Each structure stands twice: as structure tokens, then as C-alpha cells.
Computed example of a mutant assay.
Amino acid sequence: MLIIDSPSNNAYFNIAAEEYLLHHYPEKELFLLYVNAPSIIVGRFQNTLAEINLDYVTENQIKVVRRLSGGGAVYHDLGNLNFSFHTTQGSDDFSDFSKFTQPVVDLLNGLNVPARLEGRNDLLVDGKKFSGNAKLARNGKMIQHGTILLNSEMQVLSEALKINPLKFKDKAVKSARAHVTNLIDYLPGGITLDKFKQLLIDQIVKENEASTIHSLNPGEVAKIEQLAAEKYSTWDWNFGGSPAYNFKKAIKVPAGFIELHLDVKKGVIQQARIFGDFFASKPIEELEERLIGEAHEIDTMKRVLSSVKLTDYFGKVSLDELVTLFQ
């Protein structure tokens, strides 16, 4: 396993690095660590403008970057450590997050922090979330990445992210701050982000004896910077052009939050966009394309949805649940 500590705090660079490493190390297992300056990282299938406080984000020069994986929006700053495992895609269950969150849990438990994995993809301490995790499968590889809130600015986090009531309808939520916490108050005194990063690297080395440290060379840095400039810093990628939707609905299912936008003319779907914090092992654009040209009526939607394996696009969801999205 190659262990890479990113030399940059630029979110455009670090999210671009995930894609670059995915394609340029097709057979290598990697462990990437990075720390971003203030930024919001949105899930691949999310409607960015519905997730952020745009005025606040613009005023405070907070970068907004869309990642390749599904899941929800997260806030990053210099008090937040991000980790990313790149592995060859084998027989592992795509929906199982335990394997690659376990090193973090083991490290924290060894420091007498009662951390544990709970729900789909969250790490909690005392019932509060300090780490959200996401994953994707592509080109024979799988990436699972997550955040670790060590000493983030919680007020900024709360102001920068909008909370969608539907996403939290089954939880007693008063604010985002009520559900997240920093680890700094649980860790032994004197542990900084850099020290914690080194402890996590040591934990990975301990569990993977053949691991080696790899520094990105100038050529790799240049290619990542080019990808960041051409894709990850652009409005088209991070926000995307939206059609003039005539139909919009959202549902909450075990697989996550799913939001549908349709542009319908004379009863026929002209454009379709699907957003949410679900995890997909296949591109959601494939399903969006299948909807175009079909009549926006329930029997037709059942036929179209029955023709695909829904779990490839949404995880744990039933046909009946998804059909309600179109009603």
C-alpha cells in the first residue's frame, strides 16, 4: 500500500488528486491523506445550490467542490483531516463501510475515545458524528473516503451548509451543530491535527506491513493541477446547468435522500436529473438517460424502473419506494 500525504490545502487539488490516483494507479492500493482550507465538498448526485448557503459561502470565499462519490455535503477546514482508501474492487460489499473505518476506530479506541461506526457510514462518539464516509466504484477500483473533525469551526460549518428537513425527518434535529462534534475534547492533551495524522499513518503501517510512503512528484502534481483547473474548479462541474424543471419531488428511504427533477413537455420527459446522498456503483446518468422520451405516468415509470437493477443506482431501495418519487 502506498501512503500519500497531499502537499496541498487546496480543495480543488485534493479532490482532483482522488480522480488522478484512481486512473494512474489502477492496480495499487493507496491511502491518501489531505487537509483542505475552508470548503464544502458535495456528493456526486447532489443539487449543489440546495445544499449550501450561497451568500455566506461567497462572502467568506469558501470553495465548493463536487466529488466523484455519492453521499452528502460536508464542510472541510484546517481542523478537519480527510482520509481516502483506494483498493482493487473485489468481493467486498459495496454498502459495507466497516473495513476502512476500522483503522480510525481502532486508533481512537486505543486513545480511550469511545468511537464507533453507526448507521450507514458515520463514525460517532457519545452519539455525535465526527466522521462521514462515502465511496465509489470505477474502472475496477473502489475508493472509500471520510472526514475526521478534530478542531473545525462549528459555527462556520453550521452557517455554510443548509439542512434539508426531508433528509432529517426521522431524527430530532434542531441544528447541524447538534449532530456533529470535534474530537479535540476527547483526545489526550497536546494532540494536534499533524500529530493525529501521524498516528493514523502509523496505524495503517502497523496493519499493512508492506506499506511505503510515496510523495507526489512534480509531474504528478502538474497533472493534478491541470485536472483541478479544467474540471474541479469549474462552475459546470461543481454546480451544473439545471433545466427549467416542471416537476420536483424528494423522498427519504433506507438508501438515503433522493431528489428528482423532471422537465416534462406534453406528458413526455425531456430532461431528468436525480440528486441525493445515496451511493451508486453505476453512473446515475445512465438511469437519467433511460427516463428521457418516456411518458411521465406511473405505469410507464414502473416499466422503466423494473428494467434496471435499482440497487446499482441507489443502494437499498425497492421499486415501490422509488415509484412514489414520480407521483
Rank of each mutant, 00 (worst) to 15 (best):
220 E>I: 00
173 V>Q: 08
180 V>S: 08
209 E>V: 09
215 S>C: 10
210 A>C: 03
170 D>Q: 10
181 T>A: 12
174 K>Q: 14
226 Q>R: 13
182 N>I: 03
196 F>C: 10
218 P>H: 01
191 I>P: 13
194 D>K: 13
223 K>T: 01
221 V>F: 02
222 A>Q: 14
216 L>E: 06
219 G>D: 11
179 H>I: 07
171 K>R: 15
223 K>D: 12
188 P>M: 12
174 K>W: 00
197 K>G: 01
219 G>I: 00
183 L>C: 13
196 F>T: 06
208 N>I: 04
181 T>F: 03
192 T>W: 03
200 L>N: 08
167 K>C: 10
186 Y>V: 09
204 I>F: 14
220 E>Y: 02
171 K>I: 06
178 A>Y: 04
219 G>A: 07
173 V>D: 07
210 A>R: 08
184 I>P: 00
191 I>K: 06
216 L>D: 06
227 L>C: 05
208 N>V: 04
212 T>S: 14
167 K>T: 14
230 E>S: 15
213 I>C: 04
218 P>L: 01
201 I>P: 05
175 S>Q: 03
215 S>I: 09
227 L>K: 11
176 A>E: 01
168 F>N: 11
168 F>A: 07
201 I>D: 09
199 L>Q: 15
222 A>H: 05
204 I>P: 06
200 L>G: 11
211 S>G: 07
197 K>Y: 02
200 L>A: 07
225 E>K: 11
196 F>R: 04
171 K>W: 00
173 V>Y: 04
174 K>V: 12
168 F>K: 01
200 L>K: 10
173 V>E: 10
180 V>M: 08
174 K>I: 09
199 L>K: 15
228 A>T: 03
195 K>I: 14
187 L>V: 05
227 L>F: 07
210 A>M: 05
202 D>I: 05
176 A>S: 12
221 V>S: 02
203 Q>C: 09
177 R>K: 15
184 I>H: 15
195 K>M: 12
230 E>P: 01
197 K>I: 03
171 K>F: 06
172 A>P: 03
192 T>M: 08
224 I>E: 04
199 L>D: 06
215 S>T: 14
168 F>Q: 03
215 S>G: 00
217 N>Y: 03
213 I>F: 12
227 L>H: 03
189 G>H: 13
176 A>H: 11
216 L>A: 09
184 I>G: 01
220 E>T: 01
223 K>F: 00
178 A>T: 08
214 H>M: 10
197 K>M: 07
166 L>S: 11
186 Y>I: 08
205 V>P: 01
186 Y>M: 11
198 Q>T: 13
220 E>N: 02
226 Q>K: 15
217 N>W: 00
192 T>K: 11
225 E>C: 02
205 V>F: 06
169 K>I: 12
229 A>V: 04
187 L>H: 13
189 G>I: 00
206 K>F: 13
179 H>V: 04
228 A>I: 02
187 L>G: 13
194 D>C: 03
214 H>C: 05
198 Q>S: 08
204 I>M: 14
217 N>S: 10
198 Q>I: 02
229 A>T: 12
177 R>F: 03
177 R>C: 07
181 T>Y: 04
205 V>Q: 15
209 E>Y: 02
218 P>D: 11
198 Q>Y: 08
167 K>H: 10
177 R>H: 05
191 I>W: 07
192 T>E: 07
228 A>N: 09
